[in-house]
């Protein structure tokens, strides 16, 4: 059987909210090392992956590897029944067709349990090799959220370029053009408020802003985000979930036809 207890249950709610619009039906792979998911969106333009480590849970038990087919929209509806300070426990039997979720209030004076019906889902798994990035940028997640939101009011696509000047985001639309350049900083009070840029080679890639905006739904999970740009490859946008794991998004670039 599988059983996992998370004191900070709101993280699970935030994670599901961060991915449910891109992927609706997904497989969660459970093993004694934790919970993993990898899924492409319906149009196969982007890929979402998360990892929740077993040691990030307050209690984690998995007797043998399980695949749970989950409708994320339905899971999100169920998680709406949990309070923001609730402790969440998930349980599934080895051959069961439901995932049981239990929400306990902080004082443990209110307990909700809900069974979510599981599904059988056919999904493709992509092998993503370790890559040598052209440029790696770490920035406050609120900064990333603001850039992609602001540029969405100018156009549908963004050119992202890394040069010795910094990282430049440029959007072009019917009403005009906009450029936002981020330079490396070191003066912020907290380390995570700084922008860090590590560039190995200049790179320029074009992406659909709609997806980059969707990735910003993970902002509540982490104060920082890492953006990896690689020549002629999908951009990778990483949010580390403190003491628990990560959610990563990959977006295929727009290419000249």
């Amino acid at each position: 059987m599988f059983e996992a207890r998370l004191i900070q249950g709101s993280l699970l709610k935030k994670l599901v909210d961060a991915i449910k619009e891109l992927c609706t039906e997904v497989n969660w792979d459970i093993s004694n090392s934790g919970i993993n998911m990898q899924s492409m969106d319906g149009s196969h333009v982007c890929l979402v992956a998360f990892n929740l480590r077993a040691d990030g849970f307050d209690h984690f038990r998995c007797d043998r590897p399980l695949t749970l087919g989950i409708n994320l929209g339905n899971l999100a509806k169920i998680l709406k029944c949990s309070g923001s300070n609730d402790i969440i426990t998930m349980k599934a039997d080895d051959n069961g067709d439901t995932l049981t979720l239990m929400f306990e209030s902080e004082k443990q004076d209110r307990i909700t349990d809900v069974d979510l019906k599981l599904m059988s889902i056919e999904s493709e798994h992509l092998g993503i090799p370790d890559q040598d990035y052209s440029a790696e940028t770490s920035m406050p997640s609120s900064e990333y959220q603001r850039i992609v939101r602001d540029l969405s009011s100018i156009g549908d696509t963004v050119n992202i370029s890394a040069t010795k000047e910094g990282i430049k985001f440029s959007a072009m639309g019917d009403i005009g053009t906009a450029n936002i350049t981020l330079r490396q900083t070191s003066s912020a009070d907290k380390e995570e408020e700084n922008v860090k840029i590590e560039m190995k080679e200049p790179v320029l890639l074009t992406f659909a802003l709609r997806y980059l905006n969707n990735f910003a739904k993970a902002t509540p999970l982490s104060s920082t985000v890492q953006v990896f740009l690689t020549k002629d490859l999908p951009v990778q946008v990483n949010y580390n979930i403190q003491d628990l794991g990560y959610v990563k998004y990959y977006l295929a670039p727009k290419i000249e036809e």
Binding site: V45, L126, G127, A252, E256
Partner: peptide, 14 residues
Amino acid sequence: KSGQSRMESFFQVL
């Protein structure tokens, strides 16, 4: 004119 590429163009389906 630029077109949208798909994930399978970059990573192998296992």
